[in-house]
């Protein structure tokens, strides 16, 4: 099963490599990993997407918790939560194609944020499936470059993953 796990980490040098080292050393899957400091600059928030059997996910969470830099951990998949990923996609846009890509962008509520005579850069935020769908919808052969942030997430409701 796919799990999305949020980790609050001490914002220390090497914390990220401890996490990535843990996944490679123990042979766990890692689909994506994003990390950035929070409003409290001494803390980083990491979002991890991983897959595995329930036993493996349990171990992953325990091992992450065991890291001395880990302050708190939450498996977002266990409750109601919101997931968002951001994508920047560069597409070839010439002649009639330009109109069609513009329409597509509107349908997906994406934004064109860079324009040349032959290309657009489109910015799109949403669930990972929505980003997949956009890529699918771009006509064959027009995608030049895809940059995805990997999902981040937050639990619904009033409670926060804080100190």
């Amino acid at each position: 099963m796919r799990h999305i796990i949020s980790v609050l980490l001490e914002n220390e040098a090497g914390a990220l490599s401890r996490v990535s080292g843990l996944f490679s050393a123990r042979g766990y899957n890692i689909e994506s990993l994003t990390v950035a400091p929070t409003d409290d600059p001494t803390l980083s928030r990491m979002t991890l997407v991983t897959t595995g059997s329930e036993e493996i996910i349990e171990q992953i969470k325990k091992q992450l918790n065991k890291l001395v830099d880990t302050v708190k951990l939450l498996d977002l998949t266990e409750g109601r939560h919101i997931e968002r990923e951001m994508m920047l996609i560069k597409v070839r846009a010439v002649k009639e194609g330009r109109e069609e890509l513009k329409r597509l962008t509107d349908i997906f509520r994406a934004k064109i944020i860079d324009v040349t005579e032959t290309s657009y850069v489109v910015e799109l935020t949403g669930t990972s499936q929505k980003l997949d769908a956009f890529i699918q919808a771009v006509p064959e052969g027009l995608v030049v470059e895809v940059v995805r942030s990997g999902p981040t997430g937050i639990a619904r409701g009033e409670k926060g993953l804080t100190l």
Binding site: E55, E58, Q59, K62, Q63, N65, K66
Partner: peptide, 11 residues
Amino acid sequence: VDPSSISKNVR
């Protein structure tokens, strides 16, 4: 004392 030892190899 280590939670990660529990149910690691044997349920």
